[in-house]
Design a protein around this nucleic acid. Structure first.
Length: 378
DNA sequence: TTGCTTATGTGTGAACGTTA
DNA sequence: TAACGTTCACACATAAGCAA
């Protein structure tokens, strides 16, 4: 098969070929027709017939053109060293018209190759269609996804707006809290704790269980702070250094911000005073603390007191009575009248003390009538 | 049951402001 | 300036609650 060449080299044989050969191109197909039977069926009409009519007009030229075309197709499609070509060539080896036969065989092979290529193209086309449809589906999906994206963007924008609103409200609340700290100061009640007012109530923590718990928490914390501030509870509160007091107040305000509401830390002060007073009292009673001689008279007074005298929470009653008295005093014109009233109250008190020892502690100017409703509870 | 803590009432003296 | 009233601080007494 080394002699196998492209058909261009042998074109001259065709051009110089005798007319018998040229004319017998079709009749001489006896052998070829047998060989080419399957392909001739494919070319029953169309290109086969056209070539035949062209050959009748100028067979040599047509053959030359055909050879060129086929040769170009062979260059593109046929492997000259393939086994199929080898076997075909051997069959026609000694035939005079071998080149023509070979040309047709090559032509048929080229057609076959074209058909195969067409089939491959069709397969590729189908694959391309599939890809196109897939791409179209992707585009459709992208289009369908757009509304979701828009919705998401809207939700994000709404979220951002809400966040801004929350932040603004928080700022507003913080400002309000600061204002509350400044504006809602509770002044110290008149009198002394336990005698004229109740610390817990005046602190506004006498409402419910939670208030009570908060009050107790603050109170216990103040006790701890008293020791942590190295305050000498064996001495009267008045003798406590101002620096130690201020330090204690500052820490107390930090631990319990509610204490800021009470002017000049009166609540803190009252709690600590009450604590160290009771602690000293306990020490005197137990004997591990010596009472100053200046307070001996209190012991004497206590001995004179009637132990059967009833005790109870009278602060509120006395306070309300005082308010009523002040209102009455405001109505009264002239100081003489007020003085007269005071004297009368004292006289009433003296009367009460002489009549009923149990009311001897009613020091705040309570008349007996005004006090009856209270004592009725005992 | 006991001991401690808390809350409240008591009387007194001192300091302070107001008034005659 | 003295008298008076108010407020404050102090200790004592006691009831009630709570925990060991």
């Amino acid at each position: 098969m080394e002699n196998f060449k492209l058909l261009s080299d042998s074109t001259h044989h065709l051009q110089d070929a005798p007319s018998s050969l040229k004319d017998s191109s079709e009749p001489s197909h006896g052998q070829q027709q047998e060989y080419d039977q399957p392909h001739s069926a494919k070319r029953a009409s169309g290109r086969g017939k056209a070539v035949q009519s062209e050959n009748q007009l100028n067979p040599a030229k047509n053959m030359s053109d055909t050879l060129k075309t086929v040769n170009a197709r062979i260059k593109r499609h046929i492997d000259p060293y393939s086994d199929a070509m080898d076997s075909k060539f051997e069959i026609i080896d000694n035939d005079k018209t071998q080149e023509i036969v070979f040309l047709r065989q090559s032509h048929d092979l080229a057609d076959l190759k074209i058909l195969e290529t067409q089939a491959a193209n069709e397969a590729l086309q189908k694959e391309l269609d599939k890809l196109k449809s897939a791409a179209a589906a992707g585009a459709r999906f992208a289009q369908e996804k757009n509304p979701l994206l828009e919705e998401l963007e809207k939700a994000q924008a709404a979220n951002a707006t809400l966040r801004k609103k929350v932040q603004a409200l928080a700022d507003k609340q913080r400002i309000h809290d600061v204002d509350s700290d400044v504006n809602e100061n509770v002044p110290r009640p008149a009198g002394s704790a336990g005698n004229n007012f109740n610390i817990q109530n005046e602190m506004g923590l006498g409402g419910n269980t939670n208030d009570r718990e908060q009050y107790l928490a603050i109170m216990r914390n103040m006790h701890d702070l008293t020791h942590q501030a190295s305050i000498n509870w064996e001495q009267p509160w008045a003798k406590t250094p101002a620096g130690a007091k201020e330090k204690l107040f500052a820490v107390a305000r930090e631990r319990h911000p509610i204490l800021k509401h009470y002017e000049n830390d009166w609540a803190t002060e009252e709690l600590v005073k009450q604590y160290i007073k009771n602690k000293r009292c306990h020490g005197y009673r137990k004997g591990f603390l010596e009472r100053p001689a200046q307070y001996d008279y209190l012991k004497t007074n206590s001995a004179k007191r009637n132990p059967s005298a009833p005790r109870g929470p009278r602060v509120a009653v006395r306070q309300s009575k005082k308010v009523a008295e002040k209102k009455a005093a405001a109505k009264a014109k002239g100081k003489s009248k007020a003085k007269l009233r005071t004297k009368q109250v004292v006289e009433d008190d003296d009367e009460s003390m002489s009549d009923e020892p149990g009311l001897s502690h009613d020091r705040g100017g309570l008349s007996r009538q005004g006090n009856e409703s209270f004592w009725a509870r005992y």
